[in-house]
Design a protein around this nucleic acid. Structure first.
Lengths: 185, 185
DNA sequence: ATACCCATGTAAAAAGTTACATGATTAG
DNA sequence: CTAATCATGTAACTTTTTACATGGGTAT
C-alpha cells in the first residue's frame, strides 16, 4: 500500500464531508480552514489522482457534467485510512515565523523599521479578530450538526491565537516607545 | 544583484552576531531560535556559498583551523542588505497546523483518538513552558546587551503562545468530556 | 462581445529534509 | 581504543508554489 502524505489526507478530509471537485476542495481550503491550512491546485489535483490510484477515492459518474467538472467521492478504504491517520501521532513540524526571526535579529538602529512591522501585524490581528467574530456568528446557525463542536473548537483556537499575538504586538510597541525614550535622553 | 531568500537572510542574521562556521549556525538555530525558526545543513552550506558569491559574506582566513573548520564573516554589503530586509514587508506565509487540521475533520467517533492528541499537546506545552522559564532565567544574566530587549521579546512571544495553546488544549479536553457524557446518556 | 468566474491540469522552479560520505579531535 | 562530538558538504528526494495553457458557462 502506497504512502499517503499530509496533503492527501487533507484532501481526503474534505471528501469525508461529501463528494466534490478539485475546485471545490481548493475553495474549501481557501474559506473554512485558511487560518491553519492551505493547499494549492498544484497539490490538489495530483493528490486526487494519487488517492484514486490508491483506492481511497473514486470519480463519480456524472451525466451532464457542468463545465467539465469531475467529482470525487471517498471510498470505504479511504474512510478507514483517514480515521487511522486522524489519531496517529503528529510529527513535529518546524514552525517558521518571519516576524519573530526579524525581531530576534533587530537592534537599536532597527527600531523604526520593526515598529512598522508590528503596526502592520497589529492591524492584521484586528482584521482576523473581526473575521472570527463573523464566522462565529455564521456557525451558530449550524448548531445541531455533528461536526459543530469541532468546528467551533478550531474557531476558538483562532480567537485565542489572535488575542495572544495581538497582546504581544501591543507589548512590543510599548517596548519600542520605551527604547526610543531612552535613546533620546 | 542576485536574489537572496529567507534562509540566506536568516544565516546572514546569525553572522551579524559575529563570525562563525556553518556548524555554529546550525547550532544557533537549534538552540536559541528553534521555537520559531529552523534550518538544516542542506540549506545552510549552500546559503553560505551563495552569500559569499554575492559579496554579503566572506571566509575568514584562519591559521591553524581547528578540525577543518571554515569561518565566515558578514561584509558591509551583507550588513546593508540585511538591514534593508529586516524592515521590508513580510509576505504572508501559509501557516499549517496539523493538530488544527485533524480537529477540524474530527467527528464523534474520533473522540478517543483526538483526546490522545490533545493530551500529548498539553504535555508538550507544559514542557515548552518550563523551557521558556529556564531561558528567561539565563537571559537576565545578559541584561546589559544591546540585543537584550529584542531577545526578551521573542521569548515573551513564546510564553504567550504557549499559554494560549495550553488553555486551548484544556478547553478541548473539557469539550471531549462533555461530548462523551452526552453520548452515554 | 467581453469580462469574469468556473474548472482541470501540468511544468518548472523553489524550498526544504534526509541520508549519506568523509574525516578530525576530544573525552573517557 | 573507541565513542561522541565537531565539521563540511552533496545527492536524492519530497514538498510546495507559481505560472501557464486551455476551455466552458454566465452575466452585463
Amino acid at each position: 500500500m502506497g504512502k499517503i502524505n499530509t496533503t492527501q489526507y487533507a484532501v481526503l478530509g474534505v471528501l469525508t464531508r461529501g463528494e466534490c471537485s478539485g475546485y471545490d476542495i481548493r475553495k474549501h481550503f481557501e474559506t473554512s480552514v485558511s487560518h491553519f491550512w492551505s493547499e494549492s491546485y498544484g497539490q490538489i489535483y495530483p493528490a486526487l489522482k494519487k488517492l484514486t490510484e490508491e483506492g481511497c477515492a473514486e470519480e463519480v459518474e456524472v451525466m451532464e457534467r457542468s463545465r467539465g467538472q469531475k467529482r470525487y467521492r471517498i471510498t470505504s478504504e479511504g474512510e478507514r485510512r483517514f480515521r487511522d491517520w486522524l489519531g496517529s501521532p503528529i510529527d513535529p513540524v518546524n514552525y517558521r515565523d518571519e516576524l519573530l526571526l526579524r525581531t530576534f535579529f533587530a537592534g537599536k538602529k532597527d527600531i523604526p523599521a520593526v515598529r512598522i512591522l508590528f503596526e502592520r501585524e497589529l492591524a492584521e490581528m484586528q482584521q482576523a479578530r473581526d473575521a472570527y467574530l463573523k464566522q462565529q456568528g455564521m456557525l451558530t446557525q449550524h448548531d445541531g450538526d455533528e461536526e459543530h463542536p469541532f468546528l467551533a473548537l478550531t474557531l476558538r483556537y483562532g480567537e485565542l491565537f489572535v488575542e495572544a499575538r495581538y497582546a504581544w504586538c501591543i507589548e512590543a510597541l510599548k517596548l519600542l516607545d520605551r527604547l526610543e525614550g531612552e535613546n533620546e535622553s
